[in-house]
Amino acid sequence: MRADARKNRDHLLAVAGTAITEQGVDVSLRDIARRADVGLATLLRHFPTREALLEALLRTSFDELTAKAGELETSSSPDEALVSWLRDCTAWTTEYRGVTVLMAAAIEDTESALHASCVTLRATGARLLTRAQTAGKARTDIDGADLFALVAALAWLGDQPSLAPRADHLFDVVASAILTSAASNEAEGKHRPRARD
């Protein structure tokens, strides 16, 4: 790709990111083009569909979450790695309002531009979950699909103005439910204030 084409594409992605953060994934493509000071045809030449635009916009974040999982596997205990990644993934999905609905649909739709990225993200979470389960730190009656659904549910909570203040507390409740009793007691002990002697 030529340097000027790359620059135009990067500009469109930056503008789209801002628009989606403000208005959600259903923001008009025409509005994104207007904000970028280009015609709709120019936007569609770079990104022929809404999903193609979203895939390009979100790919960097997907890659970062995958890389973060790899780092956590070598630097943290299995339960800490799982909860840390789950927190990062949930926080990221709340940045772009409505993205969880698209991700949930894309995971089942092999024709979706987002399908491969969502499958990779789900597999990354499943790998961390399996590692924690093998270590006896996470319950064994859930799988990667369940974990992916929990990310979507937690992100949805954060996306609701009336529920957002409870999102952190509910994240902790869900995270402790994923961990086994010993692991969740250790995690709670780390966050609980020490009793004074």
Rank of each mutant, 00 (worst) to 15 (best):
Ala36Cys: 01
Ala67Lys: 14
Ser84Glu: 15
Thr21His: 10
Thr110His: 11
Val119Ile: 11
Arg6Asn: 10
Leu54Ser: 01
Leu114Phe: 12
Val15Ile: 07
Asp109Lys: 06
Leu114His: 11
Ala113Asn: 04
Arg6Thr: 11
Ala69Val: 01
Ala56Val: 00
Leu114Lys: 11
Ala19Val: 09
Leu44Tyr: 14
Gly125Arg: 06
Ala52Arg: 13
Ser75Ile: 00
Gly125Asn: 09
Ala116Asp: 13
Tyr96Gly: 00
Leu72Ile: 05
Ala123Trp: 03
Lys68Leu: 04
Thr120Pro: 04
Val38Tyr: 08
Trp92Cys: 03
Arg34Pro: 00
Glu64Cys: 04
Val25His: 00
Pro48Cys: 09
Thr49Gln: 08
Ala16Cys: 03
Pro78Thr: 01
Ala36Tyr: 03
Ala116Val: 13
Ile32Asp: 04
Val38Glu: 00
Ala69Tyr: 01
Ser61Arg: 13
Glu108Phe: 11
Leu29Met: 12
Leu121Ile: 10
Thr94Ala: 09
Thr42Met: 07
Arg59Lys: 15
Ala16Thr: 04
Leu54His: 07
Met103Ala: 14
Thr124Lys: 05
Val99Gln: 06
Glu80Ala: 13
Glu111Asn: 14
Leu121Phe: 13
Leu13Thr: 02
Arg6Gln: 14
Val83Leu: 15
Arg50Asn: 04
Pro78Gln: 05
Asp79Trp: 12
Ala106Tyr: 07
Thr120Phe: 00
Lys68Phe: 01
Arg45Gly: 08
Val38Met: 04
Gly70Asn: 10
Ser112Thr: 11
Lys7Ala: 13
Gly17Lys: 01
Arg122Tyr: 06
Ser61Gln: 14
Arg6Met: 13
Thr120Met: 06
Pro48Gln: 13
Leu43Val: 03
Thr110Asp: 12
Gln23Ile: 01
Val38Thr: 10
Leu44Phe: 10
Arg35His: 09
Leu57Cys: 10
Ala33Arg: 03
Asp31Asn: 09
Arg35Gln: 15
Ala41Asp: 10
Gly125Ala: 08
Glu95Met: 12
His11Asn: 15
Ala56Thr: 05
Arg6Val: 11
Thr42His: 07
Val119Met: 04
Glu80Val: 12
Ala123Pro: 00
Ala81Val: 01
Gly17Arg: 03
Asp31Lys: 08
Glu95Asn: 09
Ser77Phe: 00
Arg122Ile: 03
Leu72Pro: 02
Asp26Cys: 10
Glu80Gln: 14
Val27Lys: 01
Arg45Pro: 02
Trp85Leu: 06
Leu72Val: 00
Ala123Gly: 04
Ala69Ser: 11
Thr60Arg: 15
Trp92Thr: 09
Thr93Ala: 11
Arg122Lys: 14
Val83Pro: 03
Asp63Ser: 12
Ser28Asn: 04
Glu64Val: 02
Trp92Tyr: 07
His46Asn: 12
Phe62Cys: 09
Ala123His: 05
Leu13Trp: 02
Ser112Ile: 09
Arg50Cys: 02
Ala41Cys: 02
Leu82Thr: 06
Gly17Cys: 01
Ala113Arg: 07
Glu51Thr: 05
Ala81Gly: 09
Ala104Arg: 12
Arg35Gly: 06
Leu82Phe: 14
Val38Gln: 05
Ile107Gly: 04
Arg87Ala: 15
Thr49Trp: 03
Thr18Asn: 12
Val119Tyr: 02
Leu40Lys: 15
Thr21Leu: 03
Leu65Asp: 05
Asp63Ile: 10
Ala56His: 05
Val119Gly: 03
